[in-house]
Design a protein around this nucleic acid. Structure first.
Length: 499
RNA sequence: GGGGGCAUAGCUCAGUCGGUAGAGCAGCGCCCUUUUAAGGCGCGGGUCGAAGGUUCGAGUCCUUCUGCCCUCACCA
Protein backbone atom coordinates (compact mmCIF):
# COMPACT_ATOMS: atom_id res chain seq x y z
CA UNK A 1 0.00 0.00 0.00
CA UNK A 2 1.28 3.44 -0.87
CA UNK A 3 1.54 6.31 1.56
CA UNK A 4 -1.31 8.73 1.96
CA UNK A 5 -0.43 11.74 -0.08
CA UNK A 6 -2.30 14.96 -0.51
CA UNK A 7 -4.26 15.30 -3.66
CA UNK A 8 -2.21 18.18 -4.94
CA UNK A 9 0.91 16.06 -4.68
CA UNK A 10 1.53 14.33 -7.94
CA UNK A 11 1.31 10.86 -6.37
CA UNK A 12 -1.69 10.21 -8.56
CA UNK A 13 0.45 10.79 -11.65
CA UNK A 14 3.99 10.09 -10.44
CA UNK A 15 5.36 9.93 -13.98
CA UNK A 16 4.98 13.62 -14.62
CA UNK A 17 6.85 14.66 -11.50
CA UNK A 18 10.12 16.25 -12.57
CA UNK A 19 11.82 15.38 -9.28
CA UNK A 20 10.87 11.76 -9.42
CA UNK A 21 11.88 11.49 -13.08
CA UNK A 22 15.27 13.04 -12.43
CA UNK A 23 15.92 10.75 -9.48
CA UNK A 24 14.79 7.63 -11.30
CA UNK A 25 17.27 8.51 -14.02
CA UNK A 26 20.03 8.90 -11.41
CA UNK A 27 19.03 5.57 -9.92
CA UNK A 28 19.65 3.95 -13.29
CA UNK A 29 22.98 5.70 -13.72
CA UNK A 30 24.04 4.54 -10.26
CA UNK A 31 23.36 0.96 -11.26
CA UNK A 32 25.20 1.44 -14.54
CA UNK A 33 28.16 2.78 -12.57
CA UNK A 34 28.14 -0.40 -10.50
CA UNK A 35 26.77 1.28 -7.37
CA UNK A 36 24.08 -0.58 -5.46
CA UNK A 37 21.50 2.13 -4.70
CA UNK A 38 20.00 0.06 -1.88
CA UNK A 39 22.74 -1.90 -0.13
CA UNK A 40 21.91 -4.22 2.75
CA UNK A 41 24.06 -2.87 5.58
CA UNK A 42 26.75 -0.48 6.69
CA UNK A 43 29.33 -0.92 9.41
CA UNK A 44 28.74 2.22 11.45
CA UNK A 45 31.07 2.91 14.35
CA UNK A 46 29.73 6.18 15.60
CA UNK A 47 26.55 8.23 15.79
CA UNK A 48 26.90 11.78 14.47
CA UNK A 49 26.39 13.57 17.78
CA UNK A 50 29.19 11.46 19.25
CA UNK A 51 31.45 11.99 16.24
CA UNK A 52 31.16 15.74 16.71
CA UNK A 53 32.82 15.36 20.08
CA UNK A 54 35.83 13.46 18.76
CA UNK A 55 39.22 15.14 18.69
CA UNK A 56 40.69 16.33 15.43
CA UNK A 57 42.88 13.65 13.98
CA UNK A 58 40.67 10.77 15.08
CA UNK A 59 41.04 8.31 12.23
CA UNK A 60 38.89 5.70 10.59
CA UNK A 61 35.50 6.91 11.82
CA UNK A 62 32.46 5.41 10.08
CA UNK A 63 29.29 7.50 10.20
CA UNK A 64 26.06 7.22 8.25
CA UNK A 65 22.95 9.24 7.70
CA UNK A 66 20.68 11.16 5.43
CA UNK A 67 22.11 14.00 3.36
CA UNK A 68 20.27 17.14 4.51
CA UNK A 69 22.25 19.87 2.80
CA UNK A 70 24.95 19.78 0.14
CA UNK A 71 27.53 22.33 -0.92
CA UNK A 72 29.02 20.71 -3.95
CA UNK A 73 32.00 22.27 -5.75
CA UNK A 74 34.09 21.09 -8.66
CA UNK A 75 36.54 18.98 -6.66
CA UNK A 76 35.38 19.32 -3.02
CA UNK A 77 31.97 18.95 -1.38
CA UNK A 78 30.60 19.60 2.07
CA UNK A 79 27.52 17.63 3.05
CA UNK A 80 25.47 17.70 6.21
CA UNK A 81 24.41 14.26 7.35
CA UNK A 82 21.61 13.60 9.82
CA UNK A 83 20.93 10.57 11.97
CA UNK A 84 18.74 10.11 15.05
CA UNK A 85 21.31 11.80 17.25
CA UNK A 86 21.64 14.94 15.17
CA UNK A 87 23.62 16.43 12.31
CA UNK A 88 27.24 16.68 11.32
CA UNK A 89 29.21 17.97 8.38
CA UNK A 90 31.30 15.66 6.24
CA UNK A 91 33.57 16.56 3.36
CA UNK A 92 34.50 14.64 0.23
CA UNK A 93 37.50 15.58 -1.92
CA UNK A 94 38.01 14.32 -5.44
CA UNK A 95 41.71 13.91 -4.65
CA UNK A 96 40.82 11.51 -1.79
CA UNK A 97 38.05 9.39 -3.31
CA UNK A 98 39.04 9.47 -6.97
CA UNK A 99 37.42 11.03 -9.98
CA UNK A 100 34.87 8.29 -10.61
CA UNK A 101 33.52 8.21 -7.05
CA UNK A 102 33.51 11.97 -6.80
CA UNK A 103 31.26 12.04 -9.81
CA UNK A 104 28.66 10.13 -7.78
CA UNK A 105 28.60 12.98 -5.26
CA UNK A 106 28.54 15.59 -7.96
CA UNK A 107 26.03 14.07 -10.34
CA UNK A 108 24.03 11.27 -8.75
CA UNK A 109 23.55 12.27 -5.13
CA UNK A 110 20.42 14.11 -4.02
CA UNK A 111 19.43 15.72 -0.77
CA UNK A 112 17.57 13.03 1.15
CA UNK A 113 19.81 10.19 0.00
CA UNK A 114 21.67 8.05 2.54
CA UNK A 115 25.42 7.99 2.69
CA UNK A 116 28.06 6.24 4.77
CA UNK A 117 31.33 8.09 5.30
CA UNK A 118 34.58 6.46 6.31
CA UNK A 119 37.22 9.01 7.21
CA UNK A 120 39.02 11.21 9.67
CA UNK A 121 37.89 13.97 12.00
CA UNK A 122 39.10 17.53 11.54
CA UNK A 123 37.89 21.06 12.08
CA UNK A 124 37.50 23.31 9.05
CA UNK A 125 38.95 26.78 8.97
CA UNK A 126 35.45 28.12 9.75
CA UNK A 127 35.39 26.02 12.90
CA UNK A 128 33.06 23.21 11.87
CA UNK A 129 33.84 19.70 13.11
CA UNK A 130 33.89 17.54 9.99
CA UNK A 131 34.62 14.02 8.86
CA UNK A 132 36.85 14.03 5.77
CA UNK A 133 35.95 11.02 3.66
CA UNK A 134 38.66 8.56 2.66
CA UNK A 135 35.86 6.72 0.93
CA UNK A 136 32.10 6.70 1.07
CA UNK A 137 29.26 4.23 0.51
CA UNK A 138 25.99 5.05 -1.17
CA UNK A 139 23.29 3.80 1.22
CA UNK A 140 19.92 4.61 -0.27
CA UNK A 141 18.31 6.62 -3.06
CA UNK A 142 15.26 8.78 -2.42
CA UNK A 143 12.80 9.44 -5.24
CA UNK A 144 11.17 12.51 -3.77
CA UNK A 145 12.61 15.79 -2.56
CA UNK A 146 12.66 16.66 1.13
CA UNK A 147 10.96 19.87 2.28
CA UNK A 148 12.97 23.04 2.02
CA UNK A 149 16.16 23.09 4.08
CA UNK A 150 15.58 26.41 5.78
CA UNK A 151 11.86 26.60 6.61
CA UNK A 152 11.33 22.86 6.71
CA UNK A 153 7.72 21.72 6.84
CA UNK A 154 5.17 23.66 8.84
CA UNK A 155 1.78 22.88 7.33
CA UNK A 156 0.02 21.13 10.21
CA UNK A 157 -1.89 18.77 8.01
CA UNK A 158 1.30 17.64 6.26
CA UNK A 159 3.01 17.21 9.62
CA UNK A 160 0.22 14.87 10.77
CA UNK A 161 -0.24 12.99 7.51
CA UNK A 162 3.47 12.68 6.72
CA UNK A 163 4.92 12.70 10.20
CA UNK A 164 8.19 11.26 8.87
CA UNK A 165 8.82 14.61 7.18
CA UNK A 166 7.98 16.49 10.37
CA UNK A 167 10.40 14.25 12.29
CA UNK A 168 13.14 14.71 9.71
CA UNK A 169 12.84 18.45 9.30
CA UNK A 170 11.82 19.65 12.76
CA UNK A 171 14.19 18.65 15.52
CA UNK A 172 11.64 19.72 18.20
CA UNK A 173 9.28 17.10 16.84
CA UNK A 174 11.90 14.35 17.04
CA UNK A 175 12.86 15.51 20.53
CA UNK A 176 9.22 15.45 21.63
CA UNK A 177 8.78 11.85 20.56
CA UNK A 178 12.10 10.84 22.05
CA UNK A 179 10.86 12.39 25.27
CA UNK A 180 7.60 10.46 25.09
CA UNK A 181 9.61 7.29 24.77
CA UNK A 182 11.80 8.20 27.73
CA UNK A 183 8.71 9.09 29.76
CA UNK A 184 7.25 5.64 29.21
CA UNK A 185 10.57 3.96 29.89
CA UNK A 186 11.03 5.91 33.14
CA UNK A 187 7.48 5.16 34.32
CA UNK A 188 7.97 1.49 33.58
CA UNK A 189 11.25 1.24 35.42
CA UNK A 190 9.93 3.14 38.45
CA UNK A 191 6.94 0.83 38.70
CA UNK A 192 9.15 -2.21 38.31
CA UNK A 193 11.48 -0.89 40.99
CA UNK A 194 8.43 -0.62 43.24
CA UNK A 195 7.62 -4.29 42.64
CA UNK A 196 4.88 -3.86 40.04
CA UNK A 197 4.54 -6.55 37.38
CA UNK A 198 3.70 -5.61 33.80
CA UNK A 199 0.85 -7.63 32.33
CA UNK A 200 -1.21 -7.59 29.15
CA UNK A 201 -4.98 -7.85 29.11
CA UNK A 202 -7.42 -8.18 26.20
CA UNK A 203 -8.03 -5.42 23.70
CA UNK A 204 -10.80 -7.39 21.98
CA UNK A 205 -13.62 -7.96 24.41
CA UNK A 206 -17.12 -9.34 24.37
CA UNK A 207 -18.20 -6.57 26.74
CA UNK A 208 -16.79 -3.05 26.99
CA UNK A 209 -16.36 -2.59 30.70
CA UNK A 210 -14.36 -0.57 33.18
CA UNK A 211 -15.37 2.96 32.26
CA UNK A 212 -18.29 5.05 31.14
CA UNK A 213 -17.78 5.46 27.40
CA UNK A 214 -19.12 4.41 24.02
CA UNK A 215 -17.01 1.61 22.53
CA UNK A 216 -15.94 0.77 19.00
CA UNK A 217 -17.81 -2.28 17.77
CA UNK A 218 -16.51 -4.94 15.48
CA UNK A 219 -17.44 -8.48 14.50
CA UNK A 220 -15.62 -11.70 15.19
CA UNK A 221 -16.01 -13.83 12.06
CA UNK A 222 -14.99 -17.24 13.40
CA UNK A 223 -17.16 -16.91 16.50
CA UNK A 224 -19.83 -14.96 14.61
CA UNK A 225 -20.39 -12.54 17.45
CA UNK A 226 -19.99 -8.86 18.23
CA UNK A 227 -16.65 -7.72 19.63
CA UNK A 228 -15.77 -4.47 21.35
CA UNK A 229 -12.44 -2.68 21.55
CA UNK A 230 -11.54 -2.03 25.15
CA UNK A 231 -12.40 1.29 26.74
CA UNK A 232 -10.32 0.57 29.87
CA UNK A 233 -8.21 -2.28 31.25
CA UNK A 234 -9.58 -1.85 34.77
CA UNK A 235 -11.70 -4.93 35.38
CA UNK A 236 -9.06 -7.19 33.84
CA UNK A 237 -6.25 -5.83 35.96
CA UNK A 238 -8.41 -6.35 39.04
CA UNK A 239 -8.97 -9.94 37.97
CA UNK A 240 -5.18 -10.21 38.09
CA UNK A 241 -5.29 -9.14 41.74
CA UNK A 242 -7.94 -11.79 42.39
CA UNK A 243 -5.53 -14.26 40.83
CA UNK A 244 -2.77 -13.41 43.28
CA UNK A 245 -0.75 -10.63 41.69
CA UNK A 246 -0.20 -7.97 44.36
CA UNK A 247 1.01 -5.19 42.09
CA UNK A 248 0.28 -5.04 38.36
CA UNK A 249 0.39 -2.42 35.66
CA UNK A 250 -0.30 -2.13 31.96
CA UNK A 251 0.32 0.45 29.27
CA UNK A 252 -3.08 -0.06 27.75
CA UNK A 253 -4.11 1.26 24.37
CA UNK A 254 -7.78 2.14 24.76
CA UNK A 255 -10.45 3.12 22.27
CA UNK A 256 -13.50 5.30 22.80
CA UNK A 257 -15.94 6.01 20.04
CA UNK A 258 -16.66 9.59 21.03
CA UNK A 259 -16.01 13.13 19.95
CA UNK A 260 -12.53 14.25 19.08
CA UNK A 261 -10.99 17.55 20.07
CA UNK A 262 -7.56 18.75 21.15
CA UNK A 263 -7.82 16.93 24.49
CA UNK A 264 -9.58 13.73 23.39
CA UNK A 265 -8.39 11.05 21.02
CA UNK A 266 -10.43 8.01 20.10
CA UNK A 267 -7.29 5.91 20.29
CA UNK A 268 -5.14 6.67 23.34
CA UNK A 269 -2.77 5.17 25.88
CA UNK A 270 -3.63 4.70 29.53
CA UNK A 271 -1.20 3.60 32.14
CA UNK A 272 -3.08 1.78 34.87
CA UNK A 273 -1.73 0.08 37.95
CA UNK A 274 -3.33 -1.74 40.86
CA UNK A 275 -1.80 -2.35 44.26
CA UNK A 276 -3.17 -4.71 46.88
CA UNK A 277 -3.45 -3.40 50.45
CA UNK A 278 -3.05 0.28 49.48
CA UNK A 279 -5.83 2.82 49.84
CA UNK A 280 -6.30 5.96 47.78
CA UNK A 281 -4.33 8.02 50.28
CA UNK A 282 -1.29 5.75 49.95
CA UNK A 283 -1.78 6.18 46.25
CA UNK A 284 -1.76 9.97 46.37
CA UNK A 285 1.56 9.87 48.17
CA UNK A 286 2.94 7.44 45.59
CA UNK A 287 1.60 9.58 42.74
CA UNK A 288 3.51 12.60 44.00
CA UNK A 289 6.66 10.58 44.30
CA UNK A 290 6.23 8.93 40.90
CA UNK A 291 5.56 12.12 38.98
CA UNK A 292 8.25 14.09 40.76
CA UNK A 293 10.80 11.38 40.04
CA UNK A 294 9.76 11.22 36.39
CA UNK A 295 10.01 15.00 35.96
CA UNK A 296 13.38 15.15 37.67
CA UNK A 297 14.61 12.37 35.43
CA UNK A 298 13.26 13.95 32.23
CA UNK A 299 13.90 17.64 32.88
CA UNK A 300 16.13 17.88 35.94
CA UNK A 301 13.62 20.28 37.50
CA UNK A 302 10.13 20.29 38.99
CA UNK A 303 9.22 23.67 37.57
CA UNK A 304 7.77 23.48 34.08
CA UNK A 305 6.69 26.22 31.72
CA UNK A 306 3.15 25.28 30.67
CA UNK A 307 0.96 27.52 28.52
CA UNK A 308 2.88 30.60 29.55
CA UNK A 309 2.85 29.89 33.27
CA UNK A 310 5.44 28.33 35.49
CA UNK A 311 3.95 25.31 37.20
CA UNK A 312 5.72 23.95 40.26
CA UNK A 313 5.41 20.22 40.81
CA UNK A 314 7.52 20.34 43.95
CA UNK A 315 6.46 19.75 47.55
CA UNK A 316 3.21 18.20 48.73
CA UNK A 317 0.25 18.92 46.49
CA UNK A 318 -2.98 20.20 48.00
CA UNK A 319 -5.72 17.65 48.69
CA UNK A 320 -9.14 19.23 48.35
CA UNK A 321 -12.51 17.50 48.49
CA UNK A 322 -15.18 18.15 45.89
CA UNK A 323 -17.32 19.66 48.61
CA UNK A 324 -14.65 22.07 49.89
CA UNK A 325 -13.64 23.13 46.45
CA UNK A 326 -17.13 23.86 45.19
CA UNK A 327 -18.06 25.61 48.44
CA UNK A 328 -15.09 27.90 48.12
CA UNK A 329 -15.57 28.64 44.43
CA UNK A 330 -19.31 29.35 44.38
CA UNK A 331 -20.66 29.20 47.91
CA UNK A 332 -22.73 26.07 47.40
CA UNK A 333 -22.42 23.30 50.00
CA UNK A 334 -23.29 20.17 48.07
CA UNK A 335 -23.80 18.23 51.29
CA UNK A 336 -26.60 20.64 52.21
CA UNK A 337 -28.55 19.63 49.11
CA UNK A 338 -29.52 15.99 49.31
CA UNK A 339 -31.52 15.77 46.10
CA UNK A 340 -30.85 16.75 42.51
CA UNK A 341 -33.77 19.21 42.62
CA UNK A 342 -32.50 20.96 45.73
CA UNK A 343 -29.02 21.24 44.28
CA UNK A 344 -30.38 22.50 40.98
CA UNK A 345 -32.24 25.28 42.81
CA UNK A 346 -29.09 26.25 44.68
CA UNK A 347 -27.12 26.41 41.43
CA UNK A 348 -29.81 28.56 39.82
CA UNK A 349 -29.92 30.78 42.89
CA UNK A 350 -26.20 31.46 42.41
CA UNK A 351 -26.88 32.46 38.82
CA UNK A 352 -24.73 29.64 37.40
CA UNK A 353 -25.77 28.37 33.98
CA UNK A 354 -25.23 24.67 33.27
CA UNK A 355 -26.21 23.06 29.99
CA UNK A 356 -29.05 20.53 30.33
CA UNK A 357 -29.13 21.09 34.09
CA UNK A 358 -32.72 19.88 34.22
CA UNK A 359 -31.95 16.38 33.04
CA UNK A 360 -28.80 15.70 35.10
CA UNK A 361 -28.80 13.56 38.25
CA UNK A 362 -27.24 14.83 41.48
CA UNK A 363 -23.81 13.33 40.81
CA UNK A 364 -23.58 14.74 37.31
CA UNK A 365 -24.83 18.11 38.53
CA UNK A 366 -21.96 18.20 41.01
CA UNK A 367 -19.53 17.14 38.33
CA UNK A 368 -20.72 19.81 35.89
CA UNK A 369 -20.69 22.40 38.62
CA UNK A 370 -17.09 21.50 39.44
CA UNK A 371 -16.08 21.70 35.80
CA UNK A 372 -17.74 25.10 35.48
CA UNK A 373 -16.57 26.85 38.64
CA UNK A 374 -13.51 25.00 39.93
CA UNK A 375 -11.55 23.00 37.40
CA UNK A 376 -10.52 25.88 35.11
CA UNK A 377 -8.85 27.59 38.08
CA UNK A 378 -6.66 24.62 38.94
CA UNK A 379 -3.22 25.33 37.51
CA UNK A 380 -0.76 23.89 40.02
CA UNK A 381 -1.03 20.14 40.67
CA UNK A 382 -4.01 19.51 42.92
CA UNK A 383 -5.66 16.34 44.18
CA UNK A 384 -9.45 16.56 44.04
CA UNK A 385 -10.94 13.91 46.33
CA UNK A 386 -14.24 12.37 47.42
CA UNK A 387 -16.24 12.28 44.21
CA UNK A 388 -20.01 11.67 44.28
CA UNK A 389 -20.57 7.94 44.61
CA UNK A 390 -22.83 7.63 41.57
CA UNK A 391 -20.05 8.90 39.31
CA UNK A 392 -17.75 6.16 40.56
CA UNK A 393 -19.43 2.77 40.12
CA UNK A 394 -16.18 0.82 40.58
CA UNK A 395 -14.82 2.84 43.51
CA UNK A 396 -15.04 2.10 47.20
CA UNK A 397 -17.73 3.85 49.22
CA UNK A 398 -16.36 6.09 51.97
CA UNK A 399 -16.90 4.60 55.43
CA UNK A 400 -18.04 7.89 57.01
CA UNK A 401 -20.01 9.38 54.14
CA UNK A 402 -21.76 6.81 51.94
CA UNK A 403 -22.52 9.44 49.29
CA UNK A 404 -18.89 9.85 48.28
CA UNK A 405 -16.18 7.56 46.98
CA UNK A 406 -12.63 7.12 48.26
CA UNK A 407 -11.34 8.60 45.05
CA UNK A 408 -9.00 11.28 43.77
CA UNK A 409 -8.09 12.96 40.53
CA UNK A 410 -4.91 14.87 39.88
CA UNK A 411 -5.62 18.10 38.02
CA UNK A 412 -2.88 20.21 36.45
CA UNK A 413 -3.46 23.24 34.27
CA UNK A 414 -7.18 22.39 34.21
CA UNK A 415 -6.48 18.91 32.81
CA UNK A 416 -7.40 15.72 34.60
CA UNK A 417 -4.19 13.77 34.41
CA UNK A 418 -4.70 10.98 36.90
CA UNK A 419 -7.81 9.24 38.16
CA UNK A 420 -7.53 6.80 41.05
CA UNK A 421 -9.41 5.31 43.96
CA UNK A 422 -9.67 2.75 46.64
CA UNK A 423 -11.25 -0.05 44.65
CA UNK A 424 -14.66 -1.41 45.41
CA UNK A 425 -13.97 -5.00 46.49
CA UNK A 426 -17.36 -5.80 48.07
CA UNK A 427 -19.14 -7.96 45.47
CA UNK A 428 -22.59 -7.29 46.94
CA UNK A 429 -22.17 -3.52 46.78
CA UNK A 430 -20.63 -3.87 43.30
CA UNK A 431 -23.64 -5.81 42.04
CA UNK A 432 -26.00 -3.16 43.39
CA UNK A 433 -23.95 -0.35 41.83
CA UNK A 434 -23.80 -2.05 38.44
CA UNK A 435 -27.54 -2.68 38.59
CA UNK A 436 -28.05 1.06 39.08
CA UNK A 437 -25.77 1.76 36.11
CA UNK A 438 -27.56 -0.76 33.98
CA UNK A 439 -30.88 0.90 34.78
CA UNK A 440 -29.45 4.26 33.76
CA UNK A 441 -28.28 2.65 30.56
CA UNK A 442 -31.67 1.20 29.70
CA UNK A 443 -33.08 4.62 30.55
CA UNK A 444 -31.07 6.00 27.63
CA UNK A 445 -27.80 7.01 29.32
CA UNK A 446 -25.37 5.79 26.69
CA UNK A 447 -22.33 6.28 28.90
CA UNK A 448 -23.62 4.28 31.85
CA UNK A 449 -21.89 0.99 32.51
CA UNK A 450 -23.28 -2.41 31.78
CA UNK A 451 -23.85 -5.31 34.13
CA UNK A 452 -20.71 -7.46 34.04
CA UNK A 453 -21.44 -10.89 35.50
CA UNK A 454 -18.05 -12.29 34.60
CA UNK A 455 -16.33 -9.56 36.58
CA UNK A 456 -18.69 -10.09 39.52
CA UNK A 457 -17.87 -13.80 39.42
CA UNK A 458 -14.20 -12.93 39.81
CA UNK A 459 -14.97 -10.51 42.63
CA UNK A 460 -16.97 -13.10 44.52
CA UNK A 461 -13.84 -15.24 44.66
CA UNK A 462 -12.35 -12.58 46.86
CA UNK A 463 -10.33 -9.38 46.63
CA UNK A 464 -7.96 -7.80 49.16
CA UNK A 465 -8.06 -4.06 49.74
CA UNK A 466 -6.84 -2.49 46.47
CA UNK A 467 -6.03 0.93 45.20
CA UNK A 468 -6.00 1.45 41.46
CA UNK A 469 -4.65 4.31 39.38
CA UNK A 470 -4.89 5.48 35.78
CA UNK A 471 -3.05 8.15 33.81
CA UNK A 472 -3.70 9.38 30.31
CA UNK A 473 -0.18 9.08 28.94
CA UNK A 474 -0.96 11.23 25.91
CA UNK A 475 -2.36 13.96 28.12
CA UNK A 476 0.50 13.86 30.58
CA UNK A 477 2.97 13.90 27.73
CA UNK A 478 1.23 16.85 26.05
CA UNK A 479 1.14 18.63 29.40
CA UNK A 480 4.83 18.33 30.17
CA UNK A 481 5.90 19.08 26.60
CA UNK A 482 3.61 22.11 26.57
CA UNK A 483 1.57 20.94 23.60
CA UNK A 484 -2.05 22.13 23.49
CA UNK A 485 -3.15 19.31 21.18
CA UNK A 486 -2.84 15.61 22.01
CA UNK A 487 -2.14 14.90 18.35
CA UNK A 488 1.21 16.57 18.76
CA UNK A 489 2.38 13.76 21.02
CA UNK A 490 0.97 10.95 18.86
CA UNK A 491 3.19 9.91 15.97
CA UNK A 492 0.47 9.07 13.49
CA UNK A 493 -2.87 10.54 14.54
CA UNK A 494 -5.99 9.32 12.76
CA UNK A 495 -6.77 11.47 9.73
CA UNK A 496 -9.60 11.30 7.28
CA UNK A 497 -8.29 10.03 3.97
CA UNK A 498 -7.96 12.61 1.23
CA UNK A 499 -9.94 11.78 -1.96
C1' G B 1 -23.66 19.26 15.17
C1' G B 2 -23.06 25.32 15.55
C1' G B 3 -19.53 29.39 14.61
C1' G B 4 -14.73 31.22 12.68
C1' G B 5 -10.22 30.59 9.76
C1' C B 6 -6.98 28.24 6.12
C1' A B 7 -5.95 25.55 1.08
C1' U B 8 -1.34 29.18 -4.90
C1' A B 9 5.23 25.12 -7.82
C1' G B 10 8.30 19.45 -4.25
C1' C B 11 8.78 22.98 0.44
C1' U B 12 8.17 28.12 2.64
C1' C B 13 5.40 32.04 1.00
C1' A B 14 3.91 36.79 -2.15
C1' G B 15 -0.07 37.88 -5.49
C1' U B 16 -2.77 45.43 -4.96
C1' C B 17 -9.14 47.47 -7.31
C1' G B 18 -11.38 41.36 -10.93
C1' G B 19 -7.08 42.50 -16.22
C1' U B 20 -0.93 37.80 -19.33
C1' A B 21 0.45 33.37 -12.04
C1' G B 22 5.62 35.37 -8.96
C1' A B 23 10.04 34.88 -5.32
C1' G B 24 13.45 32.02 -2.28
C1' C B 25 14.94 27.20 -1.52
C1' A B 26 14.69 22.65 -4.26
C1' G B 27 15.35 20.72 -9.67
C1' C B 28 18.01 20.65 -14.71
C1' G B 29 22.77 22.40 -17.67
C1' C B 30 27.70 24.66 -17.22
C1' C B 31 31.79 26.67 -13.87
C1' C B 32 33.93 26.16 -9.07
C1' U B 33 39.40 22.56 -3.57
C1' U B 34 37.22 25.07 2.64
C1' U B 35 31.66 25.60 2.16
C1' U B 36 27.85 25.84 5.95
C1' A B 37 20.69 29.41 3.92
C1' A B 38 27.98 28.27 -0.41
C1' G B 39 28.64 31.27 -4.95
C1' G B 40 28.36 32.63 -10.49
C1' C B 41 25.86 32.18 -15.48
C1' G B 42 21.69 29.96 -17.93
C1' C B 43 16.92 26.98 -18.09
C1' G B 44 12.58 24.44 -16.87
C1' G B 45 8.50 23.74 -13.34
C1' G B 46 1.20 25.48 -11.86
C1' U B 47 -5.98 21.56 -12.85
C1' C B 48 -4.25 28.48 -7.85
C1' G B 49 -8.09 21.95 -3.06
C1' A B 50 -12.85 20.27 -6.31
C1' A B 51 -17.39 21.53 -8.88
C1' G B 52 -20.70 25.16 -10.35
C1' G B 53 -22.07 30.45 -10.88
C1' U B 54 -21.45 36.03 -11.79
C1' U B 55 -18.42 38.66 -15.46
C1' C B 56 -15.94 40.71 -21.79
C1' G B 57 -12.40 38.62 -18.24
C1' A B 58 -11.90 34.97 -11.73
C1' G B 59 -6.05 32.82 -7.83
C1' U B 60 -9.15 37.18 -6.44
C1' C B 61 -16.42 37.89 -6.07
C1' C B 62 -20.82 34.24 -4.96
C1' U B 63 -22.73 29.03 -3.95
C1' U B 64 -21.86 23.98 -2.85
C1' C B 65 -18.44 20.19 -1.67
C1' U B 66 -13.61 18.04 0.36
C1' G B 67 -9.56 18.25 3.83
C1' C B 68 -7.14 20.65 7.94
C1' C B 69 -6.88 24.09 12.26
C1' C B 70 -9.36 26.94 16.19
C1' U B 71 -13.75 27.48 19.12
C1' C B 72 -18.62 26.14 21.41
C1' A B 73 -21.53 21.82 22.40
C1' C B 74 -21.01 16.62 23.33
C1' C B 75 -17.39 13.56 25.55
C1' A B 76 -13.10 11.44 30.96
Amino acid sequence: MGPLIRRRDSMSTPDDNEYRQARLAKLERLREAGVNPYPERYERTCMLARARELDDGTEGVRVAGRVMTARVMGKLSFLTLQDQSGRMQVSVRQDDVGKEDYKVIKKLLDIGDFLGIHGDVYTTRTGEKTVAARDFTFLGKTLRPLPEKWHGISDKESCYRQRYLDLLMNRETMDRFLLRSRLIRTMRSLLEAEGFIEVETPVLQTKASGAAARPFKSHHNALDMPIYLRIAPETWLKRCIVGGFDKVFEFARCFRNEGMDPSHLQDFTMLEYYCAYWNYEDNMAFTEKLIQTVLRDLFGTLELEIQGETIDFGGTWPRVTFREMILEDCGIDIDAHETADALREAILAQGIQLEDADRLGRGNLIDHLYKAVSRPKLKAPTFITKHPIDLSPLARRNDDNPRVADRFQLVVNGWEVVNAYSELVDPIDQRRRLEEQSQLKSGGDEEAMEMDEDYLLAMEHGMPPISGWGMGIDRFCALITNQPNLRDVVLFPLMKPVE
